[in-house]
Design a protein around this nucleic acid. Sequence first.
DNA 1: CTGATAGTTAAGCATATACTTAAGTATAAA
DNA 2: TTTATACTTAAGTATATGCTTAACTATCAG
Lengths: 109, 109
Amino acid sequence: MLNYQLDQTFAALADPTRRAMVERLVTGPATVSELAAPLPMSLPAVMLHLKVLEKSGLVQSEKAGRVRTCRIEPRMLSQAENWVADRRAMWERSLDRLGALLDSPENET
Amino acid sequence: MLNYQLDQTFAALADPTRRAMVERLVTGPATVSELAAPLPMSLPAVMLHLKVLEKSGLVQSEKAGRVRTCRIEPRMLSQAENWVADRRAMWERSLDRLGALLDSPENET
DNA sequence: CTGATAGTTAAGCATATACTTAAGTATAAA
DNA sequence: TTTATACTTAAGTATATGCTTAACTATCAG
């Protein structure tokens, strides 16, 4: 019920800047500067977004020398995907039950 | 790139109260009071969450007499699911390309 | 060593979120 | 027609979010 990880993952994906960063990272790893280059904001602002992505588990990064390289962590992507897919499946099953109920003999005139 | 609808859908799903409401609604329609009953907060607070869900397009509601009935709108659920699924697919393709590159003859010793 | 590069931290600010309680407003039941 | 139900609105508060600029810290290059 209380899934803190999901809170953070969905919250991370709710921001267009962070989705843009994810879009970049699904094509391969990138440095902080490379992530920031196309974004209309300061580098510290990008750092904050990166921190949110890392805390959610969607992104991991490591620093070598003075360069920090960021990469996607696909497990969290799957977790978010699965939560939504599961709920959509539940909804479809409940529709099926409704259909079966309406088709059942007890509902004939 | 700028998908306002997705912002709102992911933001809506980022809150555990609202996910609980969605979980309830995928099993079938419910009134505001039914949605509120299991939740540890006041009715006006639930109304605010409902408003967020409606604005995102995940939930629709209509009032008959003094009762407002809420139901899931599965299209938005699909849209969120698809965004994540598509990005995961992109990530996998980029992994494949990397693999192909490492396997290619140019990389032999 | 000296300077440029890549990132980081700090401080501050404006707006948005997630609630609360109190006071309504329709509708339906007795 | 009084009273209860089901929601709705208003007003207020506390915390979180999304930025900014300025100042700082490590590298690495010449």
